[in-house]
C-alpha cells in the first residue's frame, strides 16, 4: 500500500526563519500517525505547511498521488485533506448549523452534505441540542466538537487534528477522545498531535518524535518501544 500523504525533505518556516529542516514523514502505510515532541519545535508548522497555510521553501508533499506543495488551501481541502487547527476559535458569531454548512463548502463535499451532517450528529449528539446557538456561547469542549464536526462535513480522506484536547476538563476530554476513536474506526485516517500520551498511543500506531524541526525518532508498529521509553522521549528531552 502506498502512502496517502508523503512529505519529503520539507523545509519551511515564517519569513526568513526556517522552522522545519529537511523533514520527511509518511502517512497511511501504518495506520494513524501521531506526532509528539516539545512545544515550539515545528509540529504545528508542519501541519500548517501540509494544509497550505504556509509556503514550502523546498521539498515535496504528495497527497493521494498528487503534488500539493504550495497549492492553495482551498484545493487541498477539496482533495479531502482537512486540518483542524490548534486552539480553533472557529467562527465565533456563526451558529453550529452554519459552521457545519461551511464545512461542506467545497464542491466534492457538497454532494454528501446531508449524509455527513447525520454522521456528525451521530458522533456528537450534543451539537444537535444547540443547533442554532452561536459558537462564542459554547464551552471549550463543545467548540472543539464543532471544529471536528465541521472538518467531517468536508468528507475527509485524511484528517489532521492539532491538539484536540488542549485545555479541556478531564471529563469532557474523555468524551471527546471516545468520539475521535469512533471517527478513526469509521475509516478516516488521522494525523494527531497530542500532549496526552495515553490518548496518543491508543489512537496512533505510527509515531514521529519531532525535535528542532526534524524527525528525531520514528516508531513503526512492530518496533515496539515500551511505554517508559516513550514517556522518557516525551518528557526527557
Amino acid at each position: 500500500m502506498s502512502a496517502l500523504l508523503e512529505v519529503q525533505s520539507l523545509t519551511a518556516g515564517y519569513g526568513r526563519i526556517d522552522v522545519l529542516h529537511d523533514i520527511s514523514i509518511s502517512v497511511g502505510t501504518h495506520g494513524n500517525v501521531g506526532l509528539f515532541g516539545p512545544n515550539g519545535h515545528g509540529k504545528t508548522t508542519l501541519l500548517r505547511t501540509i494544509s497550505g497555510l504556509l509556503k514550502t521553501k523546498s521539498g515535496t508533499i504528495t497527497f493521494d498521488g498528487k503534488p500539493i506543495a504550495n497549492a492553495s488551501p482551498r484545493s487541498i481541502v477539496d482533495m479531502g485533506l482537512i486540518h483542524v487547527p490548534q486552539g480553533n476559535r472557529l467562527f465565533p458569531d456563526l451558529t453550529i448549523a452554519e459552521c457545519l454548512t461551511l464545512g461542506a463548502y467545497t464542491k466534492r463535499a457538497r454532494a454528501d452534505e446531508a449524509a455527513n451532517r447525520e454522521k456528525v450528529v451521530k458522533i456528537f449528539p450534543k451539537l444537535a441540542e444547540r443547533w442554532r446557538q452561536k459558537v462564542r456561547t459554547l464551552s471549550g469542549g463543545e467548540r472543539q466538537m464543532v471544529s471536528i464536526g465541521t472538518a467531517l462535513m468536508g468528507s475527509p480522506k485524511l484528517l489532521i487534528l492539532d491538539e484536540p484536547t488542549l485545555g479541556l476538563a478531564p471529563k469532557i476530554k474523555e468524551e471527546l477522545c471516545a468520539s475521535v476513536l469512533d471517527i478513526s474506526k469509521g475509516g478516516v485516517p488521522l494525523i494527531v498531535v497530542e500532549q496526552d500520551v495515553e490518548f496518543l498511543l491508543e489512537l496512533s500506531q505510527h509515531l514521529y518524535l519531532i525535535n528542532h524541526g526534524e524527525v528525531a525518532t520514528e516508531i513503526k508498529p512492530g518496533e515496539t518501544m515500551d511505554h517508559a521509553e516513550i514517556m522518557a522521549l516525551y518528557f526527557g528531552q
Binding site: S51, G52, L53, P73, R74, V77, D78, I82, H83, V84, P85, N88, R89, L90, F91, P92, D93, L94, E98, T101, L102, G103, Y105, T106, A109, T150, G154
Partner: peptide, 23 residues
C-alpha cells in the same frame, strides 16, 4: 445564502475560512 455565509465567515476568522476551503 451559502455565499453570504462564506462572506460572514471570512470576516470572523481568516485561517479557519481557508481551512474549510473558502476562496
Amino acid at each position: 445564502t451559502r455565499l453570504g455565509l462564506a462572506l460572514r465567515a471570512v470576516a470572523q476568522n481568516e485561517d479557519a475560512s481557508l481551512l474549510v476551503g473558502l476562496n
